[in-house]
């Protein structure tokens, strides 16, 4: 089994969807989450606060500095994600299609590195 990150991106400055759309999206995501759990593919998932709430911490030679805002200076920022356990990419892509439909946005699928042998 492999693990895959299914990442959802938010575009900074994009129009905010209406409360009805947001509500519908939450309901759909809840439903797909239940299905993922029932199928045994669930590892973890969550939605993130907007990227302007982020802090970047750098530790270099014992000196720690902090900067306000996200690391990547782009308009597209991680908005939420699933971590799923799947047989192969096809299985992950099949979930991604359904997650994209549920969260009303594109979903990026990325494999995790294999865990090193104990």
């Amino acid at each position: 089994m492999k693990q895959y990150l299914l990442a959802v991106h938010m575009v900074e400055g994009a129009p905010i969807p209406s409360p009805e759309v947001t509500e519908k999206m939450y309901a759909q995501v809840d439903k797909i989450n239940q299905e993922i759990q029932a199928a045994g593919a669930w590892v973890f998932a969550g939605g993130l606060m907007p990227a302007d709430s982020a802090t970047v911490v750098r530790s270099d030679n014992g000196r720690t500095t902090m900067t306000d805002g996200p690391f990547a200076e782009t308009k597209e920022q991680l908005g939420g994600f699933w971590v799923l356990r799947c047989e192969d990419l096809d299985a992950a892509l099949a979930w991604a299609a359904r997650c994209s439909e549920a969260c009303l946005g594109p979903v990026e699928v990325r494999p995790f590195q294999d865990e090193p042998e104990a």
Binding site: E87, D88, L89
Partner: peptide
């Protein structure tokens, strides 16, 4: 990619 992403 076939290897890393486990394309079946």
């Amino acid at each position: 990619k076939i290897r890393d992403a486990a394309i079946p």
